[in-house]
Amino acid sequence: MMRKLTAVLILSIGVFIATIDATAQNVSSLRINEAMLFNTDNYVDNFGQRSPWIEIMNIGYNSVNIANCYLTNDLNEPKKYKIPSGDPKSEIQARQFMVFFADNKTEHGTQHLNFTLDSTHRFIALLSSDGTIIDSVTLPLLELNQVYNRMPDGSPSWEKSFFSTPNSTNEGRFEKTSSGEAFLAFDPSGIIMAIIAMAVVFAALIVLYRIFRTIGKINQRSAQLKSAKFAKEQGLPVTSQEVAGEVYAAISVALYLYETDTHDQESTIITIQRVSRLYSPWSSKIYGLRQLPHEQRRRN
């Protein structure tokens, strides 16, 4: 009973931790990816107005719902702007972006914050629904229409740039080379790939080999100890030699043949010698044939 309770408890704790972790995994994938302090000739909102803006990126590979998270420009007031949950737009797809306007005009929609950014308010923080800081950044003093962005997207390194990319990747201005092309530039013959890959394959399988060699030895040792103990108890001579698999196979086959040796037809022997068979009612034909009904006559 105690064991069962412990198992249930461990399972429940496991599920609880996994759930917490899964939630954390979701919003923890959000990053402040780009921000503009002074917008005079840049990104225009749906109302044709320009204001400071903040771009949030989902660096994960699953969509994340940003609803109920908080944005603030002052840590003394961490829950300054709660992102409403009723807006279907609050879902940010994998590796995608969402722009918020720091224009203090919440009446313009859920993506318009209730605070602004300027030379004295350059701090931005994104907090989860329970108030934990997911990401924060203090913008340096930027020039007009200059952005402060992560390069590459979602990375820890920031840089100033006049190449603003709201709702899009910060790496857009660079020619993107595929991983294959990049690898080929360093390894045109493929020899480095061959050496590295073979080394990794060997390393993985050597570790597997070592583990199972050790497990095998432990098993053999414990089997020997068991058989020695049994032999001692039974007073039999102790033998350290392991029974070969072939012996087990032969015994198994013999047992199988013995157990499945059921047949409908008995084996017969043809002989010229006179054979006498003892009478047995079980083999008597009389009992195997249908008996004709006896005619009974009434005698008067």
């Binding site: 073979m198 394959v201 060997f202 993985a204 399988l205 050597i206 597997l208 080999y209 060699r213």
Partner: peptide, 8 residues
């Protein structure tokens, strides 16, 4: 287990 290495 050493047969594993042939697979590598």
């Amino acid at each position: 287990p050493k047969l594993i290495l042939i697979g590598a």
